[in-house]
Design a protein around this nucleic acid. Structure first.
Lengths: 363, 363
DNA sequence: CTGCCGCGTGATACCGGTATCAGACCGCAT
DNA sequence: ATGCGGTCTGATACCGGTATCACGCGGCAG
């Protein structure tokens, strides 16, 4: 059946009829293009006002081929990190007249592919993607979008197999700095709550690096930063101190508990995610340990809570809003005609030193 | 200029040509309606596959008058509460084939009006709104949407002036229960971190109630719950113990600090929002006080952090995901043809008792 | 007075789908 | 052989905008 426009708003033809002018004249007036004499313009405007006319953006998009809509694909809107990112994206795109369709993938590549299809179908003008794609076999959907002329900008996670603009932070340096702070305080047994899904638990440094290569760029960089700091201090790497596998809070509790029960137990823990920190805190409590004296702590993703903990936590603060804003800006510039730089736009995070790091107990 | 379809995907006509059939036949096959012989169907499918055909959802919407898109208006995507809500909304609407456009208003009514206009223009099929509208003079934009045949469902905040479906929690009872727990523990000087913007600080109970009537429904209900508990216990209401005005963390620190410095100081604090709790915690630290012994604490909006605080915090957990899911479900049912019930759908929150409430010090 | 120019306006062909409907084609009965 | 009914298919008119273009009309030069 054709559209049931029982009560839908008036069309431009109806406005034209009401104003007693041709459709094209009404369109020119309301669309703000071409020339219309002041007199007719006034009549059209009055008619539109009277009828409560609102242009149908769908029809306009059909005609112009531009939807003024951006598609955003993130792992999880419920995650404060992505929520902040989204805020940055929508603030700056709104300011430039673009709206946003958001899709969550929950780290599932299938979902991500489905999401790009939806966005292609809806003819978004561009996409901002925080992709779960790991290697060149998993980027076909993003290539498909680009082949259709839809610019794609990556955010938070670069994808090595794709030569695209990516807005990220200096994960490697950030991780390295955090671990250096721990080392400077005297720690040598430093737990690393990492957690990308891997086939089997890596036993050697080589295996670990190999696992990183098949995982999220962000995770790989953070691992490298951890290793960098260890190497510089000539601290031998111990695979038992890094947690792999899904990073749910429950698993973190178990894994950190394990590291705490080791004969030569961990005296410091570095977490690569918010959930990692809450899980670690629970593991500490369970083990009857406290920070910073029994165990020193540094985590990723600062929040209001981290500052009110007793003692307050030393955290890495990511510029979430800026990350989103920058991604939107890069995309919007491309849509505005700028040639894609196809480069990494790296923003700086900040290590906020509070009171969760102290020297290890005499041992 | 007409659309520059330089590299945009193939159209149904191109698929038809490739398959050597008429446009209508290709449309029937790809659109999944009408009849097509198995043979032609196969040819069309093959052609579509070969060309990488994807239907243009815009064109389809134009023709059918249905966009399969929901508009969501919330105060702030960055707020964990709304982020959770959004997750509930998008999970259930995705499952039913609907996508979501999200707009943040930052509690600004102007922004909210602009947001509804955007959604009307984009011809969303329905809207889920967490409105900042306070009274009957501020709901014209929502009425306008409804007049155009766009169903609206309210979430988190009911609007008295609007006879619409609203999905909310039992704010009054939740607040009452929390305060009752505090009273049962022996507290009589209970601070209330409330915080709706008001013209002048209410000095009497009457003025306070009047202020509540001109504010967010949610805030009003929570105030009533606070008052209910006080009344039942015959505890006189003291306007000095309720914070009004913008509820930024900074202001909470100041206001709670004030209540803590009162000659007959507060021995318990009840916060109506997450930011309220972190602010209160900072005020406590500043005053050199600790909980639960110096001050008992209960807050709204549980989080992973609240559980790992030392001692862990007693909090009210809202069913955020369910709230969003239910709102989407109600809206989708209406879109599916169900008559709007125009009622309040009330979900239950849960008071999670942990260790931030103790009896007041001997005084 | 005629012709040309240019301005302002309205008719109209798109965009890419959906949905109606006419008609081609086939089989079968008369 | 003709007529009739039913299938299956393709032509075509929408949806509501945008953009091109032709045309009417007035002014001015020849």
């Amino acid at each position: 059946m054709p559209a049931d426009r029982g009560q839908a708003g008036p069309t431009i033809s109806e406005v034209a009829a009401e104003a007693g002018v041709g459709r094209a004249t009404a369109a020119r007036t309301l669309g703000g293009y071409g020339y219309v004499s002041p007199e007719l313009r006034a009549r059209v405007l009055a008619a539109a006002e009277k009828l409560g006319y609102r242009a149908n953006a769908l029809a306009r998009s059909m005609s112009t081929g531009v939807s003024h809509t951006l598609g955003v694909i993130v792992a999880d809107i419920g995650n404060p990190f992505f929520a902040g990112l989204l805020r940055g994206i929508s603030d700056t795109s709104r300011a430039r007249g673009f709206d946003v369709i958001v899709l969550s993938t929950y780290e599932n590549l299938q979902e991500e592919v489905a999401a790009t299809d939806v966005l292609i179908d809806k003819r978004v003008d561009g996409m901002i993607v925080s992709s779960a794609a790991l290697d060149r076999n998993q980027v076909a959907h993003l290539r498909a979008a680009m082949d259709r002329g839809i610019p794609v900008v990556l955010v938070d996670r670069a994808v090595a197999a794709l030569d695209l603009d990516a807005v990220v932070i200096e994960n490697r340096e950030a991780a390295r700095e955090a671990v250096e702070v721990l080392i400077a305080a005297g720690h040598r047994r430093i737990g690393f709550v990492w957690g990308p899904p891997v086939a089997k638990v890596p036993a050697t440094r080589r295996e670990l690096l190999a696992a990183a290569a098949h995982n999220l760029w962000t995770d790989g960089e953070r691992l490298r930063g951890y290793l960098d700091a260890l190497d510089d201090a000539h601290i031998p790497f111990d695979p038992e101190l890094v947690m792999v596998g899904p990073k749910t809070e429950e698993r973190v509790v178990g894994e950190v508990g394990r590291m705490l029960a080791l004969p030569d137990r961990v005296t410091a823990v570095f977490c690569t995610e918010t959930d990692g920190m809450t899980g670690t805190l629970r593991a500490l409590r369970k083990a009857g340990l406290s920070y910073p004296d029994d165990v020193a702590l540094i985590g990723f993703d600062d929040s209001a809570w981290a500052a009110v903990m007793e003692p307050p936590l030393t955290m890495i603060a990511q510029p979430v809003h800026e990350l989103g804003a920058k991604a939107a800006q890069v995309l919007l510039d491309i849509l505005g005609g700028a040639a894609p730089a196809r480069e990494m736009h790296t923003l700086r995070s900040r290590l906020i030193q509070r009171a969760s790091v102290a020297a290890p107990r005499e041992g």
